[in-house]
Computed example of a mutant assay.
Amino acid sequence: MGLLLVEAPHSVSLDAVMTALWSEEKPPRNARTAVHIHMARLRRILCDVQCGSEKIITTKRSSYQIDSSEVKIDLRLYKEACQSAQIARSKGETTLEEWHLTRAVELWNGDLLEDVPLGTDYDDRRRLLREWHLDVLERLWEIRIEQGASAQAVMLLRRLLASYPLRENAWCLLMTALMRDGRSAEAVSAFNAAREIFTEQLGIGPGMRLQSLFQEVLTA
Rank of each mutant, 00 (worst) to 15 (best):
T58E: 14
R29Q: 15
V154F: 07
I37V: 15
W171S: 11
E25N: 09
V6E: 15
E186T: 04
T102Y: 05
A190W: 02
G205Y: 07
F191T: 07
L174A: 05
S13E: 11
R127K: 11
I57K: 00
R43E: 03
G2A: 08
L160K: 00
A194Y: 05
L96R: 00
L137S: 02
A16Y: 05
L129W: 05
M18H: 06
D115E: 12
H133K: 03
Q147M: 06
L173N: 05
D123T: 13
R125M: 12
Q152T: 12
E186D: 14
I56L: 03
E97F: 00
A193I: 10
I37C: 11
S184V: 13
W22I: 11
M39G: 03
A177P: 09
L46A: 06
R183G: 11
Y122S: 05
V105C: 08
D135P: 03
L218I: 14
C172S: 15
L4T: 10
R41W: 09
G182L: 04
L161Q: 08
A153G: 08
L218M: 08
V17N: 11
T33N: 09
E98V: 04
M39H: 01
R61P: 02
M175F: 05
L46S: 04
Q211T: 14
G52C: 02
D67Y: 00
E114C: 06
L178W: 01
L202I: 05
L21S: 09
L42Q: 06
S90K: 01
I66K: 01
E7S: 13
P206S: 12
V17G: 09
S62N: 14
H38K: 09
L112F: 08
P28A: 13
R195I: 07
L101G: 04
H133W: 08
K72A: 15
L77N: 12
V17L: 15
A16H: 06
L178Q: 03
E80N: 13
S11I: 09
E186I: 07
L96W: 00
M208R: 13
A85Q: 02
E7G: 05
Y122I: 14
C51W: 02
T94Y: 04
S68C: 07
